[in-house]
């Protein structure tokens, strides 16, 4: 059963995370590793990228997976700043990073779950679709990058807050694929 990991500060300006996100399966257990309380400010993105890169490296993700995680969280935060908060600085965003175990056995995959919470404008579900890449024009690529990079991408809106849940499982190395006969 999924652990109740949400224990956000009760400051008025800080997004809270509900006790249940409604995400994840019953066989997945998550354990909080890190929680960042940010203000919406593009200048903070480089700090988040550096933090997540190191976290993913420590969790032994390969370089390619590490870049995917960093890219996805960066793009998601940029979307929160630009769209949910309309570019307004100083608005609260919480980034939670959890170790996610898929199954009970030690050899079961261990992933990284990242949940972004903000108190900005509700997302328009119609805008949550990746645009066609045949169209050559600036903009609209961020969501495509996130969907291409992560194993799970889930949006939800609860109690006036937006939640984005991202999960990445390590890509098996070539040696591991060969062992499994893939």
């Amino acid at each position: 059963m999924r652990r109740e990991i949400w224990s956000f500060d009760s400051q008025v300006s800080t997004p809270k995370t509900p006790n249940k996100t409604g995400a994840g399966s019953a066989s997945e257990r998550s354990e909080t590793l890190l929680r960042l309380h940010l203000e919406s400010n593009p200048e903070a993105l480089c700090l988040v990228r550096a933090t997540l890169q190191r976290a993913a490296e420590i969790l032994q993700f390969q370089e390619h997976d590490t870049r995917a995680i960093v890219r996805s969280v960066d793009e998601a935060l940029a979307n929160v700043i630009r769209h949910a908060y309309g570019g307004q600085k100083g608005q609260p965003i919480v980034v939670s990073c959890n170790r996610l175990r898929k199954g009970e056995k030690p050899e079961d995959p261990v992933g990284l779950e990242i949940i972004l919470a903000d108190s900005g404008e509700a997302l328009d579900p119609g805008k949550l679709k990746s645009r066609s890449l045949q169209e050559i024009r600036p903009g609209g690529l961020g969501l495509h990058f996130i969907k291409e990079s992560m194993d799970v991408v889930e949006f939800s809106r609860k109690e006036g807050q937006n939640f984005l849940r991202l999960v990445k499982y390590p890509t098996p190395s070539k040696a591991e694929k060969n062992e499994k006969g893939d």
């Binding site: 990228r49 960093v70 793009e75 940029a78 050559i136 600036p138 903009g139 690529l141 961020g142 990058f145």
Partner: peptide, 13 residues
């Protein structure tokens, strides 16, 4: 070292 979608959008522009 890093480019995001806004950087790519600038290149397209």
């Amino acid at each position: 070292r890093y480019i995001d979608s806004s950087g790519i959008a600038s290149l397209v522009e």
